[in-house]
């Protein structure tokens, strides 16, 4: 596989930051009570990841090994603050909804993880692509989780679309069904854990099926485990 394809496959599916590496779970579980909240945080994270991977990759040859982590942290913290300010300026209400979880992107291990594991060893172009794919993988999980919880809990989809896309997007909001008493647990934090668990199970199930298709009759007994590229986890 070419490196570009390999990176995409790793980021979106095989080594998905949320489903496989289990990184950044705190914001992931906390904000995904609607699709729009999920998309908002996902986009913010994607943007930070892109910026940090590119900058780390550009400066990788000039940073002595001993001080690389403080440098990464400075780059990431500064980017997150910028994203925070920009969101505060241009998506004020969404920023109010996501609140503390925007500054908390700093602590998302997926970002420093990619800086350390990929960007510090590869050229800016590949690093940018890696950030895009990892970020998209994370964004997709946030969006799917948000969508499922919103449908189950509120019976709506895209509620609050105007917070992210401006006034014109209000009509995007879909009322799928009306619930007198909503399915509370989906909106509450336990719902996030349950749906997340189901998503991981579903992914593993499909992985197994794909593996069986590829391997065909040759039944491999070998159990492959996904590995995290860093020892540290959030």
């Amino acid at each position: 596989m070419s490196p570009i394809k390999e990176i995409s496959w790793q980021g979106i599916w095989k080594n998905n930051p949320a489903l496989v590496q289990m990184l950044g779970l705190c914001p992931l579980l906390a904000v995904t009570n609607t699709l729009i909240n999920g998309l908002g945080l996902g986009l913010a994270t994607l943007f930070v990841l892109l910026g940090s991977n590119i900058s780390v990759s550009i400066v990788r040859n000039w940073i002595p090994n001993e001080i690389r982590i403080p440098v990464f942290v400075m780059i990431i913290a500064s980017l997150v603050t910028c994203v925070q300010l920009i969101m505060n300026a241009y998506t004020y209400q969404l920023y109010q909804t996501l609140g503390i979880f925007i500054p908390l992107i700093v602590t998302n291990c997926a970002i420093i993880g990619r800086a350390e594991a990929f960007a510090s060893k590869n050229n800016p172009l590949l690093s940018a692509w890696d950030a895009l794919m990892m970020g998209t993988g994370f964004l997709m999980v946030l969006a799917v989780l948000g969508a499922i919880r919103e449908i189950l809990g509120n019976g709506t989809l895209f509620s609050g679309a105007d917070l992210l896309f401006g006034e014109g997007a209000t009509h995007l909001t879909m009322n799928l069904f009306n619930v007198e008493e909503s399915f509370l647990v989906a909106i509450l934090p336990p719902g996030a854990f349950i749906v997340m668990g189901l998503l991981i199970a579903l992914k593993n199930h499909y992985d197994k099926r794909i593996e069986n298709l590829v391997v065909g009759q040759q039944k491999s007994q070998k159990i492959e485990r996904a590995r995290v590229t860093l020892e540290s986890q959030s």
Partner: peptide, 12 residues
């Protein structure tokens, strides 16, 4: 180098 990075990131 650390000082330089601190200046640049703070500046940004």
């Amino acid at each position: 180098i650390l000082t330089l990075f601190a200046l640049v990131t703070t500046g940004l």
